[in-house]
Nucleic acid binder design. Sequence first.
RNA 1: CGGGGAGUGGCGCAGUCUGGUAGCGCACCCGGCUGGGGGCCGGGCGGUCGCAGGUUCAAAUCCUGUCUCCCCGACCA
Length: 555
Amino acid sequence: MTRLTDLLLPTERQPPADAEALSHKLMVRAGLVRQVGAGLWSWLPAGWRVHQKVVQIVREEMDAIGAQEMLMPLITPAELWQRSGRYAIPELFKLKDRKGADLILALSHEETLTFHVAAAVQSYRDLPKLLYHFQTKGRDEARPRAGVLRTREFIMKDAYSFDRDEDGLQISYEKYAGAYDRVFDRCGLEWYSVQSDVGMMGGSGAHEYMAPCPAGENDVALAPGYAANVEVAGAEAPPAPPLPDSISGELHTPGASTIDALAQSLGVHPGCLLKAFPVVTESRGLVTLFLRGDHRVQEVKLANALGEEFRPAQADELEAAGLVGGFMGPREGVPAIYDAAVTPGRYVVGANRVDWHEVIEVGAGERLDFRRVESGDTVDGRTIRVEPAIEVGNIFKLGVRYSEPLRATYLDEAGRERLMVMGSYGIGPARIAAAAVEQFADERGISWPRAIAPWDVHVVALGRAGEESRAAAEALTAELEAGGLAVLLDDRDAGTGEKLTDAELLGVPLRLVVGKRSLESGVVEAQARRGSEDLEPVALDGAAEAVARLWRGLP
RNA sequence: CGGGGAGUGGCGCAGUCUGGUAGCGCACCCGGCUGGGGGCCGGGCGGUCGCAGGUUCAAAUCCUGUCUCCCCGACCA
């Protein structure tokens, strides 16, 4: 039993002035978390209970697939990271000890675990190995944001798999994927897994687990049977209306240096225009990308499509090539690449002269897909919608990205030395908590899924200290606890409104109100936090069982 | 890193333009009333006005520097 009079639960009537995201506001208001610095948060007792609930669910599902829990240090010798090549990451916290030795704060633990497994495992007989831990991560984020959604220090469950080959990795990957499905289901979240970008570091496959909500940092493209991060999603765009024949040749377009202005002055759909996006790459030099005026470049897709990194061209480079900002178009000597949604036909492009555009005929040449998909696009005839989501977990086929530099090898049956094939699998418990707040909160506050609520039942004892209702609430609480429920008892000497309002803010799934009015009939009032209708009152006689039953029926 | 905004009691804010020694609501403490939706009355506690320097008889207010935090973007292995 937790008595509210013992608990540090600093609820606030007003959200912090600088909070933007709903989960940020509510988690602070409900007394779950407090900020220490930018991206640095303390978990107060009630919030930590939620975090621990999530951790326990994750732990159980990891154990269930045969993964073994361990613990590796946050502070790590820099040398391991120098070997893996990750020492240069800007987000990496770097420090020195008193002897001047270089150390880092691990932002994940591939290096450390690969180091251990490389030393401990020599034979194919010892593979596969599935391992995980919950450990603090340090990440010097350029921009921490939205309360606990993006922080510079946080606890992550990071898991790893070591296999002898790709086939083995596939099996391990599927085990973790299954465990993840169960974790997010059990946490009561609305979620889906999406294909994700494997990044420049390579890797042969990756999925992200996404919890849709407005505060999400990722945009996800969804259609029946299809889900992908917009960083990789590809789709068919609805065709743009044809450019009227009346518009042709050279066009005097004074001041129309933006797509909107140009489309408006010509009276045509923005899709009839081509937008130019000049970039420079290592192997190609300056290239101009063209996509429909109503489309946007998706930079991750672009890098993948190009097969190399790129940067926007600089003003002097444009000038040297004769490209004119605001009126840019194809030009002799500058390679042009068209987006896949630019179907052959007539388009308005810049004439590379200030205040002039022209109509060109685009043929059926080579295309790359580098535009961002938009709501209304289709995949195999199914309409896509794009929505924001929080990334709550990811699974990633690493391959030999770490086993190679860190020499994690084993001997196969033939005595040949071979590289272990790895996977990594992350979950952020804090993000799961924040996502649950985002997804289920209403105007009164948080509404926890049963599985991760800080307590199972919130007993509100009305009346003054010493009154009969207080004693009844105490007795009821003890009985519920004996029956296996975790109960928060509001035993404060506060007004009814304050107690009920705080209960709704905190969001425990089942609330029981003990007051003299209902006690006269030998019952307490029950209300589910989610859904507004009162449940049937619960008779004090046999309450433990009845309440447990009610609780089991909640979401 | 670029753009924008903000630092005044635990929280939310006013005061800054026009310099005169800090105020409001909530919270908190004491007393009393009330006791099923943040109730009422009375009395209180609490602030180096982010920090440093400067101007001035006098600085929350003007000047210079600096730190911190938030939002948008970039970045996010």
